[in-house]
Design a protein around this nucleic acid. Structure first.
Lengths: 197, 197
DNA sequence: AGCGAAGGAGAACGACCGTTCTCAACTGGG
DNA sequence: CCCAGTTGAGAACGGTCGTTCTCCTTCGCT
């Protein structure tokens, strides 16, 4: 039934907003009820438990986050520009109102020690992000070690931006990424496709 | 009274182990009571509330964490080696049993949206860490931008190590830091004091 | 029109949590 | 030896949370 689909979407919209803003445990099912406009009965017939709702929230957020990133990266054509576009997208994300870091890092910190499923979701998300970076790095003809280094810059920028409440870490990450890219090009590649900024 | 001091230490020891391993909200005061061997009455006469206990736990962990880092860095003499020693220390930290990332990032994710004091503690800790890196970078005669970049590498390594459960992010971070350091030296400095690895 | 299934609003329930209280055991000073 | 004060063990209290239940309305179908 497509009606269930719509209700599911509304429930997940409300859950995402609340869980991300306040943390999972600080949000009761009553708050999800109020924010979604769904009754508790309907909520529990769509999701068997709060934990199931949390896991679905994480799954959907993972997909949407990576799609949004890929969409932005796909506006660039040169391999090196595509790589750097990751950090531009992070910068835009950090500036969004209500930005409070990575939902997976936050959920892992809150529940990773107590829920194996949440920890698994966080691992999956970060693994997928790393794989995506590895593809971009490979398309630039760079060694895969750079993917791990870019991953660290991105992750560090996310948490630093969240805690300090500013978007500048994205700029620092981009600068560092560019320096690493150039250093690598100087050592092992013909010509960097990206000139000095 | 020195008796209170000892009891405080035991309470904080228990709280730190439990909060760090399972998250703050998943640990009740009863668990702290059992783990510390203190009675609830004593606990509440030492700390007026759970929130006070949480904040003290964070304060003490901040101090100890930075002291441990500084102690390790102080085993090195050359400025560049001291800078890289940060990542060696991270590597050792990541390998400790029960490592579960940065207590401040975790607490920020769990409570930062709901407790201004916890958010403030996280900000303070990260600011102090950045200041420390800035000192090391300045001692190496490097521009302060590098401090921000090293901070991102370190933060990224911490969360990536926590979520993936391995210590290798420290190695990647160190490699990236070394590359950034050399690139900077090539541009603006006389001679890097650190040869090829 | 009448009936049965479904849904909404919210009360109810059992569990748990932070905090306080009870009460008995223990302490040290007169 | 006794008593006032402190402490420990854990029961008790008020509140909240996840989940279920009740009761009433609504709605589609014949």
């Amino acid at each position: 039934m497509t009606d269930d689909e719509a209700a599911r979407a509304r429930a997940l919209d409300a859950a995402e907003e609340l869980f991300y803003a306040r943390g999972v445990q600080a949000v009761g099912m009553d708050a999800v009820r109020n924010a979604s406009g769904l009754s508790l009965k309907r909520l529990y017939q769509l999701f068997p438990s709060k934990e199931a709702l949390v896991l679905q929230f994480l799954r959907r957020r993972d997909e949407r986050w990576r799609q949004a990133l890929a969409r932005h990266v796909d506006t660039r054509t040169s391999p090196d520009e595509r790589l750097l576009a990751v950090f531009d997208w992070l910068h835009a994300w950090f500036r969004e109102p209500g930005f409070r870091g990575c939902a997976f890092i936050n959920s892992f910190g809150e529940l990773g020690g107590v829920s194996a499923d949440v920890a698994e979701q966080a691992r999956h998300h970060k693994q997928a992000f790393r794989d995506y970076l590895a593809d971009l790095v490979a398309a630039s003809g760079l060694p895969s070690d750079l993917a791990d280094q870019f991953l660290l810059l991105a992750e560090g920028a996310i948490t630093t931006a969240a805690i300090t409440g500013t978007a500048v870490p994205a700029v620092h990450a981009r600068t560092a990424a560019l320096a690493l890219l150039r250093a690598q090009a100087r050592n092992h590649r013909a010509d960097p496709a990206v000139g000095p900024r």
